[in-house]
Amino acid sequence: MLTIKDLYVSIEGKEILKGIDLDINAGEVHAIMGPNGSGKSTLALALAGREIIEITKGTITYQGENLFEMSPEDRARKGLFLGFQYPVEIPGVSMVNFMKTAINEQRKYRGLGSISASDFLKLMREKKELVGLTTNLTNRSVNEGFSGGEKKRNEIFQMAMLEPVLAILDETDSGLDIDALKTVAFGVNKLRRADNATIVITHYQRLLEYIVPDFVHVLYRGRIVKSSGKELALELEERGYDWLNDSAE
């Protein structure tokens, strides 16, 4: 589904990612862990197509196509979803209008007509319940005045609405208490299918107790220094990242 080869990325002239290789197949959950500043979010933004990211070397193939040739909106329409670490507040754009526009743009891209008002409301209700989002979304602007936890749930809610093929969740667990974490994980697990894949970016092993990964990768100073099964997460929890120093140098 996604193949990253020898990826080098800079932001404002500073090299952040230094040769990433990663293969992700349908049905898999990959966890990417690593200390602050290791390049986790940069990788997420490179996948989603943020324009400040400069790709200096390497390739990313997504569903057989060159990802770099696609605009952020086309990537999303082809099923790529980024759950933001810091969801943006957009005063004046209502959640309802935002989601309806997003759903319809996706449908248009797939050659389908606009969703009916009643189907849309039904879908909203269903997905809100799935991710445990109790916030009343009507008459609310996108993320405006949402608490930290609500913002994160709102990301998973949007993911549930858009049913992505490849979801990248960037530190979705930060700022969530344990109950919120469980409901969010429950939502993510519910959305898992044999034909989609998830990349979970996280600091802590905690989330991985609830979203069990098939692979864990450690990103350190812009490179993946270790890849293994889910047991690697536990080891990182116990030993921290310092013991990886040697393998990184």
Binding site: P72, E73, A76, V88, G92, T101, A102, L162
Partner: peptide
């Protein structure tokens, strides 16, 4: 707001439509 633009586009909303949504929100 470029962060807001990217957020909208990352949900599949085209560049033109995203600009429109933001301008409209501003005016509203």
């Amino acid at each position: 707001d470029m962060d807001a633009m990217f957020y909208l586009r990352s949900r599949g909303i085209g560049e033109k439509e995203s600009r429109h949504l933001l301008m409209y929100a501003f005016a509203n």
